[in-house]
C-alpha cells in the first residue's frame, strides 16, 4: 500500500531528453561530437575582407612593395613566394601580426564572425586567447611542417577549441589535416603504454584515415585540439595564409595556457560575478 501512496504523490516524469537544443544546434552538436571538428561559414564577411586587405597592406609595407612593384591583393596572398623567401617569412609574419594588433577591435571581430558555432561548441560564457597566431606556408616550403600531434600532449587544456581561419582557399596539402574523433581516440588509446613516439611513422600508418579539410575563403574550421592533426609540405601552387585562435568555456579547467596570461574572459555573465562577490563578502 505504501508504494502505491508514494507513487500517487510523485509527479509523472517523462523520459528526459538530453539537451534543450534547437534543431540546427542539435545537428551541429551531434556532428561535432562525432567528428571533433566542423567547417563553418563565417558571418560579417565584410569584416573578414577588411582584415585581409589590412594583411595585404601591412605585408606590402613591410616588404617595401610600392608603386609599380606593388602586386594585386590576390597575387600577394597567392604567390607570397614571389616577394618573400623562407628566411624572411618570420619577420613578415611578425610585422603583419603587430600591425593587426594595433586594432583594438580585431579579436572582437574574429569572435563575432563565428560566435554562434563557438557558443554551440563551448557554451556562452567564454574565454578567448589574447593574441592571434598567423601562419604562412609557401608552396614546397619544408620549414613550417607541423607533425601529427594533439595540443593536449603539450599540457594544453582538453577543453579548448581552435578557430582556424584562412585568408585564402585551403584544400589538399595547402590545408590542414585531422584524424576524426573516433579514430583519434582509438589511436591515442593504442599509443598509451607504448615506449617512444614517432610522429612520422604514425602519420604514414594512419594516412588513409586522415581528412584534409577543404576550407574556402569566407569559412573556417572549429576543432577540438584533442584530435590528432597537423600539416604537410604545401604541394599546391599557392601560399597558405591562416589564423588560429583558441577558445574555451570560461569556467572549464585551464592547462598550460592560463587565464590572464594567455586567455581573457570575453563574455562573463552576471550570475558568475554576483556569486563570486557573495562568497567574497562572506569571507571578509
Amino acid at each position: 500500500m505504501l508504494t502505491k501512496t508514494r507513487a500517487a504523490k510523485t509527479a509523472h516524469r517523462s523520459q528526459p531528453r538530453p539537451g534543450f537544443f534547437s534543431e540546427d544546434e542539435h545537428a551541429f552538436i551531434e556532428g561535432f561530437l562525432r567528428d571533433g571538428y566542423a567547417i563553418i561559414p563565417l558571418e560579417q564577411k565584410d569584416r573578414l575582407d577588411e582584415v585581409r586587405r589590412r594583411v595585404y597592406e601591412l605585408g606590402c609595407e613591410h616588404l617595401g612593395l610600392k608603386g609599380s612593384k606593388r602586386p594585386s591583393l590576390e597575387e600577394f596572398l597567392d604567390h607570397t613566394e614571389r616577394f618573400a623567401g623562407v628566411e624572411s617569412l618570420n619577420a613578415l609574419r611578425l610585422a603583419v601580426i603587430n600591425g593587426l594588433n594595433s586594432d583594438a577591435q580585431l579579436m572582437r571581430g574574429f569572435f563575432d564572425m563565428a560566435r554562434r558555432p563557438i557558443e554551440w561548441t563551448v557554451g556562452n560564457e567564454i574565454a578567448m586567447q589574447r593574441t592571434i597566431n598567423l601562419s604562412i606556408q609557401l608552396p614546397n616550403d619544408d620549414s613550417s611542417l607541423l607533425p601529427l600531434h594533439s595540443d593536449v600532449w603539450d599540457g594544453n587544456s582538453p577543453y579548448e577549441i581552435v578557430l582556424w581561419l584562412p585568408l585564402v582557399d585551403c584544400f589538399k596539402t595547402k590545408s590542414m589535416y585531422v584524424l576524426p574523433r573516433a579514430q583519434s581516440r582509438k589511436r591515442i588509446a593504442e599509443m598509451r603504454g607504448l615506449k617512444g613516439f614517432d610522429a612520422e611513422k604514425l602519420f604514414q600508418r594512419i594516412k588513409p584515415e586522415l581528412v584534409w579539410l577543404e576550407v574556402p575563403y569566407g569559412s573556417a574550421v572549429l576543432f577540438t585540439h584533442c584530435l590528432m592533426h597537423g600539416n604537410r609540405i604545401n604541394e599546391e601552387k599557392t601560399t597558405r595564409w591562416t589564423f588560429n585562435i583558441r577558445l574555451k568555456g570560461l569556467l572549464t579547467p585551464y592547462g598550460a595556457k592560463e587565464l590572464g596570461e594567455s586567455f581573457l574572459p570575453v563574455t562573463t555573465r552576471p550570475a558568475t560575478r554576483i556569486g563570486f562577490e557573495y562568497l567574497q563578502e562572506e569571507k571578509s
Binding site: L251, Y254, G260, E261, L264, P265, T268, T272, R273
Partner: peptide, 30 residues
C-alpha cells in the same frame, strides 16, 4: 607575467573577472 594593467577604475572589472574564475577553479561552495 600577464601583461595587464589597472590605470583607471574601469580596468578593475577584467581583473576581478579573472580572479572570480581562478577562485572557482580552486574551491567549492562552502
Amino acid at each position: 607575467l600577464e601583461e595587464m594593467q589597472v590605470s583607471k577604475r574601469e580596468d578593475v572589472a577584467l581583473v576581478e573577472d579573472i580572479m572570480a574564475v581562478k577562485a572557482l577553479a580552486r574551491e567549492r561552495v562552502p
